[in-house]
C-alpha cells in the first residue's frame, strides 16, 4: 500500500519536456553481488556527455539523448532520434557518493557500491 501511495504523490522531478522526441526505455540488466549492484543499459548512438545520471531521494534516474540525425535520403529507417529514459528505485544500502558510470560500445555500465555496514548479515535466534 505504501508503494501505491508513493506513486500517487510522487512529483515528477524532471521539467516538462520541451521537445516532442519519442522516449525509449532502454533495455537493462541488473546484477548484484555482495559488494555492489551492477546495471547495464543499452544506449546505442549516445555519447558520454549526453548521459545524465541523477540520484535523488532513493531514485536513480537515467536519461540520455541521441543526437539529431540531419542526414536525409532515407530509404528505410527503424532507428529514431529519441531520448532514453529510465527510473530505478535504489535500496538505501547503496553508497550514492561512490556510484560510477562508464560507457562502452553503446552500453552504459553503472556500478552502485553498497555501504559496508548494511552488508548481508546473519541474525541468530536465541533460545530462552
Amino acid at each position: 500500500m505504501s508503494q501505491v501511495n508513493d506513486i500517487v504523490t510522487h512529483k515528477p522531478s524532471a521539467a516538462e519536456p520541451t521537445t516532442t522526441r519519442p522516449v525509449i526505455a532502454p533495455a537493462v540488466d541488473i546484477y548484484e553481488n555482495e559488494r555492489e549492484y551492477l546495471v547495464l543499459a543499452d544506449l546505442p548512438g549516445v555519447s558520454h556527455d549526453s548521459v545524465q545520471i541523477r540520484f535523488e531521494g532513493g531514485e536513480l534516474s537515467l536519461a540520455a539523448s541521441r543526437p539529431d540525425d540531419k542526414a536525409g535520403g532515407y530509404l528505410g529507417s527503424e532507428i529514431v532520434d529519441a531520448d532514453y529514459r529510465r527510473l530505478f528505485r535504489i535500496p538505501e544500502t547503496v553508497d550514492s557518493d561512490k556510484i560510477e558510470a562508464r560507457l562502452v560500445d553503446g552500453v552504459l555500465h553503472l556500478v552502485l557500491p553498497k555501504t559496508g555496514k548494511a552488508g548481508p548479515r546473519q541474525i541468530s535466534v536465541k533460545m530462552h
Binding site: 537493462v28 546484477y31 553481488n33 551492477l38
Partner: peptide, 11 residues
C-alpha cells in the same frame, strides 16, 4: 558477469 546474482535481464 561472474559471481553476480541476476535481478533482471532484458539484454
Amino acid at each position: 558477469p561472474e559471481g553476480y546474482a541476476v535481478h533482471r535481464q532484458e539484454r
